[in-house]
Amino acid sequence: MNIALLITHGLFAVALLGALTHQALGTVWPRKPGQRDFVARFRGVNGVGYTDAVIVLYIATFIMGGIVYTIYRIEVRPPLEALQDLPTVGLFELKEHFLAFGLAMLPAYWFFWHRRPEQRLTRTMITVLLALIVWWSFLVGHIVNNVRGFA
């Protein structure tokens, strides 16, 4: 059951990562008319269309991560500390903190995408911060799982 939850958590994280990366790159580096290469197409998305999906995916992934966290605390972190692999513990601790800050930004993220599209700087900064938080969390989750999964 824990493995299934961890894998589902990871799959949701992949979807969230993809959506936020499309949206963030499209916001920071918009596609110009006539650009047709792969990177331009990757950026050429309707950013506002991703907003609700990002919020739902973020909350769902966060809740699943919060449940899996109990297993991490019992079965993963103590052996890492015993092995003096403290940098891995530190990376995961930062993941907890960053995700909490991201969670609190979601109402503002929704507001500035749906209700204040003219506030480009604010919308861009919130989106980029969320994308960086999700990228960090995704990579750290992988590192911790590779160092010591549930097995």
């Binding site: 903190h97 960053f98 800050f101 991201g102 609190a104 500035f112 604010t122 919130i126 911060l129 938080i133």
Partner: peptide
């Protein structure tokens, strides 16, 4: 502040 404070907190 909506993005600056979380950035400083991070």
């Amino acid at each position: 502040l909506v993005w600056l404070v979380p950035l400083v907190a991070i």
